[in-house]
């Protein structure tokens, strides 16, 4: 067993209304960042876990996303490659 660190990005499902992202986009426009076309606000979760290898660690985190970290109805998730912690 070795220790790995994995980062997870959770974002509102594409196509669903994202009022938080829209509010940030409007604020950016007000600040003069006119070219901004789209903003989405999500969560960034860092997990440290023991696992046999990097693949196993990533599989475990994928399972965690499906069961708890992301809501399958409203959110998408993307996990980064596991790095030794």
């Amino acid at each position: 067993m070795a220790k790995f660190r994995i980062a997870v990005h959770i974002t509102p499902r594409k196509g669903l209304l994202d009022p938080q992202g829209n509010a940030v986009k409007d604020a950016l426009h007000t600040l003069g960042f006119e070219p901004v076309k789209d903003v989405h606000v999500g969560r960034y979760i860092i997990i440290e876990t023991d696992a046999y290898d990097a693949i196993a660690a990533e599989d475990n985190v994928t399972d965690m996303c499906r069961k708890l970290l992301a809501n399958p109805v409203t959110e998408d998730f993307e996990i980064e490659s596991a790095v030794p912690a």
Binding site: P19, A23, N71, V73, T74
Partner: peptide, 17 residues
């Protein structure tokens, strides 16, 4: 109840925040 799968769908942030 939605999170537990007893009901379908989900409740999200109010559209006006």
């Amino acid at each position: 109840a939605c999170e537990a799968g007893l009901l379908p769908g989900a409740l999200m942030r109010n559209s006006h925040l």
